[in-house]
């Protein structure tokens, strides 16, 4: 399991919670599973077999990988690398990010990630020119 290579980082997290304050997701929700500290606890539980991959998937994708947690961490732990390793493993297990898949599909069909009618852009252009 590729995540196993990152076990040392997961275990080095002391759960001090300093990462919470700069996390753009946690600050919106105050939900611990959105913080880096919470994610390390979740992944620890996963490695121990107390959680399954499908149970952790959504939380792993709820991270911007902005690295604010790493910058705040007293030990400078590379949390984003761990999250990305978890995502890679999720994809291998067929648990890719559903939103990403939708974005790709939208791009293919409508040439924009939002799935909006491309003609709408032309209308905006016309309005701007008028």
């Amino acid at each position: 399991m590729s995540l196993e290579k990152y076990r040392h980082i997961i275990m080095e997290c002391v759960s001090c919670g300093l990462c919470q304050s700069n996390c753009p997701i946690y600050r919106q929700t105050n939900l611990e599973s959105h913080s880096a500290k919470g994610k390390m606890t979740i992944l620890f539980a996963l490695l121990e077999g107390w959680l399954n991959w499908d149970e952790v998937a959504e939380r792993m994708y709820e991270c911007t990988t902005c690295k604010n947690c790493q910058a705040t961490c007293l030990s400078g732990l590379d949390i984003p690398a761990v999250v990305e390793a978890a995502r890679a493993e999720l994809v291998k297990r067929g648990l890719g990010n559903k939103i990403s898949a939708q974005l790709v599909e939208n791009m293919q069909k409508t040439h924009n990630p939002f799935g909006e009618d491309p003609k709408a852009r032309n209308r905006l252009k016309e309005l701007a020119e008028a």
């Binding site: 001090c16 611990e32 599973s33 913080s35 500290k37 606890t41 107390w50 959680l51 959504e58 939380r59």
Partner: peptide
């Protein structure tokens, strides 16, 4: 919050212990 994954995120602090609540 009652999903297991979210409850587990509340199970640790700076001690060696692991204690999962039934709900948050």
């Amino acid at each position: 919050v009652s999903a297991k994954v979210d409850r587990i995120a509340y199970s640790r602090d700076l001690t060696p212990y692991f204690a999962v609540p039934d709900a948050v």
